[in-house]
């Protein structure tokens, strides 16, 4: 049972044996190569009509869900872009007759936006790199035939099952300057000078948030990397060992490059979580975390839902969406190229 999940993880994340059907399908989908493989027994003509009728008959299954999802996800994104071109604020409804880019101009001249954008990128990059590094290290350690592996994995992944609201409350307590665990431990080991009011001091605020988020999501990276490591054939480890590569070099030269797929999929999920870090910040700081920790997500909420600057909020939301697109675009492209779609 414990290993079945890893097999599945592997077949999800890489071109494992389970994907044989997939590859087949893509070939049929592409349309250009229908005459290869099993398709050769049928004539092209009947193949095409079969495709068409299958398309028609599959419509009732996927079209309604696609429409519901499309309306809420893509319809809303488009609508949001249109609202961002209006001047809508306060009560009442948006005026769609007068569309221009004034909100985006206002945004570029807004120092708050520049700061929030910078913090967003810092959070995104530092949090992602840190979580991946910790996850990889843990995966390498756990991969050494560790006993109680399942127990450890359960513990490492546990924080991810918790709501941001719950973890934010735990960490507010951890970071309490007088009696919080972090400072108590620091004082206990004689590092009094390091003790700090972590989430009030502007110079440590963002770092403290990133650290807490890393706590919540590095276990997830561990799980993804562990599956990646398990997918690498054992003889590669052996070969590198026989070549006399030191352990460190072996991992850097042989193993880590092969984990690219794992890194990529984990990074995408992490970055998306980082863009969603709003909940965590909102519980800790309300809608105004201050310039050191303000990110686009909190700024968007503040402008739209606290100040009723709907159009301005929508413009910030559009930027946020484009940022997400920059992250997931390449990922989708690679998935498509590999035939995983």
């Amino acid at each position: 049972m414990p290993h079945s999940i890893f097999r599945r993880l592997v077949s999800l994340g890489s071109d494992g044996d389970g994907d044989a059907n997939d590859a087949n399908e893509v070939r049929t989908d592409g349309g250009t190569a229908t005459a290869t493989g099993e398709g050769t027994t049928r004539s092209d003509q009947s193949d095409r009509s079969l495709l068409d009728s299958e398309f028609v008959r599959s419509l009732p299954f996927w079209l309604p869900p696609a429409l519901l999802m499309g309306l809420f996800v893509y319809g809303a994104i488009g609508w949001n872009a249109v609202i961002s071109l209006t001047e809508w604020s306060g009560f009442g409804s948006p005026d769609y007759g007068d569309l221009d880019f004034s909100m985006y101009e206002q945004m570029l001249g807004d120092p708050t936006f520049v700061v929030a954008a910078r913090n967003t990128v810092v959070l995104l990059v530092v949090f992602t790199v840190l979580s991946l590094a910790v996850g990889l290290l843990l995966a390498i350690l756990v991969d050494r035939d560790i006993r109680y592996e399942n127990t450890l994995r359960t513990i490492y992944l546990l924080p991810m099952s918790l709501s941001f609201v719950v973890t934010a409350i735990f960490w507010a307590w951890m970071y309490n300057p007088e009696i919080g665990l972090i400072n108590v431990v620091l004082r206990g080991v004689g590092l009094d000078f390091l003790a700090n009011d972590w989430i009030s001091d502007p110079s440590t605020k963002l770092g403290a948030v990133i650290f807490a988020l890393m706590w919540q999501f590095s276990g997830y990276c561990m799980v993804v990397y562990l599956a990646g490591l398990r997918a690498i054939p054992n003889d590669q480890f052996e070969a590198a060992r026989i070549d006399g590569a030191s352990t460190l070099r072996m991992y850097r030269r042989v193993i880590i490059p092969q984990l690219r797929a794992s890194t990529m999929s984990a990074a995408v999920v992490l970055m998306v979580f980082a863009l969603k870090a709003f909940d965590f910040l909102f519980v800790l700081f309300g809608d105004t975390p201050g310039p050191s920790t303000d990110i686009l997500a909190t700024m968007m909420f503040r402008e739209a839902f606290s100040s009723s600057n709907w159009a301005y909020g929508a413009a910030i939301a559009t930027v946020l969406f484009l940022l997400a697109l920059v992250v997931i675009g390449p990922y989708l492209y690679v998935q498509y190229q590999r035939g995983d779609l």
Binding site: Y74, F278, W310
Partner: peptide
Amino acid sequence: VLMLFVAGMFVPYQSVLVP
């Protein structure tokens, strides 16, 4: 169509909140 589903998983909720 699948690509639209996959991308749909990753949309930040902020970008749909106002609409």
